[in-house]
Design a protein around this nucleic acid. Structure first.
Lengths: 161, 161
DNA sequence: GCTCCCATACTCGGATAAGATTTGTCCGAGTACTATTGG
DNA sequence: CCAATAGTACTCGGACAAATCTTATCCGAGTATGGGAGC
């Protein structure tokens, strides 16, 4: 059970976008240059974020990506779900229904105690991620590293591509 | 981020083993027949559980698998970790260290706020799984379906292989 | 009759392929800017 | 001098390939059983 590498990219990139000059879109190329990532692949992840409504995108000169709403209304869960898809990691194949005494007319995703506990565990995970917004992270970073907003903007400005 | 199918098999199989006649080992073949699973592949998962110390294994006639300790001391986390490996789903590649202002002598897995929150979320997940034992599940099942212990033993007895 | 030994059948264990998902790359569609041309 | 227009460069978007992980299968190593021979 390994989470896609793109999730980390997406999280950091969204955070960086929260420091972008207001009203300006940032291209995938610049966002990728920030961490020296393959631009085309990061672009793919950003597309997913755009489809999920986390980012807005624009083509052409002056185009690029920007946050679709204020950072306080974007949770880590939003970003993770956009990249990984909303499905549970543990997918109950209703094994209990295939054993002796199993019946076809019962939905074991609701009945099976194993399935329930696994779902509860994931729910705890989801809840934590949903309780943290980009604004929270941003504030914590700024408190520890006050120079970050400016150095991030400089990073965008200096990056070629 | 998809959890291996083997985790579901392992959980159900361990639960079934908790109902096995005491002192008797059950072969991978019978455990697989219970849910009509590919025996050789289930065997592979059971090997992992044995390596992790959840099960004990024995070769030859009268051989097979059995729980390595009482069900009250086997958590769902033990089983999941045995199959999936203990590593986190989110693996911090220390992206923050590769950006402007990043330094090589800092461990960003501890510093980076994104990494921290992701780890916290997974910790919540782990905690839930670690708080539930096989005995808990078994008790819940027996309360709702009192015939399960016997029908499971019958399933083992009747299964060919 | 009892014991020892050997052949046998059974089961786990790890090495070996097939399939699926993730990762990475490329080129085309669309858009805003710019320079040029005509009024 | 101003406006309209055509060209141009730039960016996202989705289609296409490589690599990695998961899933599945197979055969060999080891072990308890059962029968037979010897005492």
């Amino acid at each position: 059970m390994r989470m896609s590498e793109g999730v980390e990219w997406a999280l950091h990139t969204c955070l960086n976008l929260s420091w972008a000059p207001p009203g300006e879109a940032v291209t995938a190329g610049r966002l990728a240059a920030f961490y020296d990532l393959p631009a085309a692949y990061l672009n793919k992840q950003l597309q997913a974020l755009a489809r999920a409504g986390v980012l807005t995108s624009a083509s052409g000169p002056r185009g690029g990506f920007r946050l679709a709403r204020e950072p306080g209304r974007i949770t880590l869960m939003d970003i993770v779900a956009a990249i990984e898809g909303g499905e549970d990691a543990f997918r109950c194949e209703q094994l209990a229904g295939k054993g002796p005494g199993g019946r076809d007319d019962v939905d074991y995703r609701a009945t099976c105690f194993i399935s329930r506990e696994m779902r509860q565990a994931e729910l705890a995970w989801r809840r934590h991620l949903a309780s943290r917004t980009l604004a929270d992270i941003r504030a914590a970073v700024e408190r520890s590293f006050p120079e970050t907003p400016e150095s991030t903007r400089n990073g965008f400005a200096n990056a070629r591509a």
